[in-house]
Write a protein that binds this DNA or RNA. Structure first.
Length: 478
RNA sequence: GCUCGUGUGGUGUAGUUCGGUCCAUCAUGUCGCCCUCUCGAGGCGACGACCCGGGUUCAAAUCCCGGCACGAGCACCA
């Protein structure tokens, strides 16, 4: 992490400001991780602010507020120091808007969006710009009172019209929305846009450093102009670039919301979705997500990263705590033969739950002549070592023990005596599909929700364990 | 088109502020080897990069100029 410019240890305030139009995505988690980490390093605090001032295009999802708050804590390992809802702060924003108009650096514009755009592009003043303050205040009262329909007026911040960047010229600060807000209802007819709301609130919360995506660079420029009007000094601002996770593409909350409502996905935690709830449910650790973003750091480069990169982080965090189990895919039945003459044979073996002993305990297997199962590709090898037990030679459906001790460099395969197996199905998300692999799992000390490493297969999470029938497991990664 | 930003191995990243200590860091990936005993685990090793062209300099990934490529913003969304 870079050092924060102009920062004093213990006097740093950062913020994370999502739109609660759905729960957090992997994309959002970058903001959570970076901001909370910087707060941690600098002895500062983090404001969690819900930017919910759009009731129409991306309306808030009431359940998302508490979910995001909880997810913030899960990801960062700490609670946000302050939680704010922009929709609760409307009186303040309206007050500053009125102040802006009264002092003459804001005005009510009654032009249509199209008309304003064409004037702006040719650096021309719109007719409303010259209106007197008294008239602006009158129009403002009408906006607030609800007598102007949506689209009929907007409050703009005065800037130089010669600004080289057309996006900044007399930018809009508040607009009319008559659509009720899910939390505060129809009380307000005028709502601030992000650039205004965020600028005011950052000031009020004493935000010292803003760290956000570089798609918001123009936002910084607009807000800096506004701060200039108010005589305030803008916070230090740092940016990160665009990230695309190859397997998912972008992280559009509204896009996912639509597809969930269409039934394409089962919910926000559908394993095919790049949401925090989905990743968490699948078995990703918050530490892996933190490590991932911290390693990418704060560069402004636009990057594409494979999911494998997050999976590698997850492997190293969960490997030491994941118990091992055998899972035989598409099992082939064989008869195990243990000739009398075999030396050192003992009828039971004890396999550690974790080879490094980082998890205590063992799985106790009783082994006698009888039926066992193995995977097809291992059976085909014919000469193989049954992991944890003995070297065998396979012929005509029989696995004949030739030595308990290792005799050569043959492949070591996982296997199971049928007595300790139970039917299981491994669900693997593959793009938009879910592939189901059936097999049998080592039925020892299994619990719903535990993440195990299936020997020679990879990590999976145990789902439902029904009283009868197959156990459902969901694939995590290799 | 205009505006802004970014260009280091396959993918990310360090180094660029104050040019030499950089025949360029680390992770991941790929390949190989090891493992009296799992693997897609772990250990060890190998592979692989400074966008291009000029310039300044004894010396440039680092400074200057010019290209090129990629991305974002140009919403009465956030």
């Amino acid at each position: 992490m870079p050092e924060l410019p102009n920062s004093i240890e213990g006097e740093v305030t950062l913020r994370f400001a999502p739109n609660p139009n759905g729960p957090l995505t992997l994309g959002h988690s970058r903001g959570v991780v970076i901001n909370s980490e910087l707060a941690e390093i600098n002895g500062g605090r983090v404001v969690l602010r819900f930017d919910d001032t759009d009731t129409r295009v991306k309306p808030p999802e009431p359940s998302a507020y508490s979910q995001i708050e909880e997810e913030f804590e899960w990801i960062s390992g700490r609670k946000a120091d302050i939680v704010i809802r922009a929709s609760d702060r409307m009186p303040v924003y309206l007050e500053y808007a009125e102040k802006m108009i009264s002092e003459g650096f804001g005005y009510v514009c009654r032009c249509t969006a199209q008309k304003f755009k064409s004037l702006r592009d040719s650096k021309e003043e719109c007719p409303c710009r010259a209106n007197e303050i008294g008239m602006n205040l009158e129009h403002w009262k009408m906006m607030v009172g609800g007598s102007i329909p949506e689209g009929g007026a907007v409050v703009r911040v005065k800037t130089s019209l010669n600004l080289p960047n057309p996006a900044l010229r007399d930018w809009p600060a508040l607009r009319i929305q008559h659509t009720p807000h899910p939390l505060v209802g129809e009380k307000y007819k005028v709502w601030p846009l992000l650039d205004f709301q965020s600028a005011i609130e950052d000031r009020l919360q004493g935000v010292t450093h803003i760290v956000r995506g570089k798609d918001l660079m123009d936002s910084t420029r607009k807000q800096t102009i506004l701060y200039g009007h108010f005589g305030w000094e803008y916070p230090e601002t740092l940016y990160w670039g665009r990230v695309k996770v190859l397997e998912f593409g972008g992280f559009s909350t509204s896009g996912m919301k639509l597809e969930i409502s269409e039934g394409k996905y089962t919910g926000w935690d559908d394993p095919r979705l790049p949401t925090i709830s989905a990743l968490r449910k699948r078995g990703f650790s918050s530490e892996a997500i933190r490590d991932f973003w911290l390693e990418l750091g704060l560069t402004q480069k636009d990057i594409s990263v494979p999911m494998q990169s997050i999976e590698a982080k997850n492997s190293s965090t969960i490997d030491p705590i994941s118990e091992r189990r055998s899972f035989v895919r598409e099992p082939n039945g064989l008869i195990l033969e243990i000739p009398e003459a075999i030396e050192n044979y003992v009828p039971n073996i004890s396999v550690p739950k974790h080879p490094d002993g980082t998890v205590a305990g063992a799985r106790e297997w009783e082994i006698a002549s009888g039926e066992i199962v193995m995977e097809e590709s291992d059976v085909e090898l014919a000469n193989i070592r049954l992991k944890g037990f003995a070297d065998v030679k396979i012929h005509e459906g029989v696995a004949e023990v030739i030595s308990i001790e290792r005799t050569d460099r043959r492949t070591i395969a996982h296997w199971l005596p049928v007595e300790i197996t139970r039917e299981a199905v491994l669900e693997i998300p593959e793009g938009d599909e879910i592939i189901r692999v059936s097999g049998v799992i080592e039925n020892i000390d299994l619990a719903e929700g535990m993440v195990v490493q299936l020997e020679r297969v990879g990590f999976a999470k145990i789902g439902e364990i029904p009283s009868s029938g197959a156990i459902v497991m969901s694939w995590l990664h290799g």
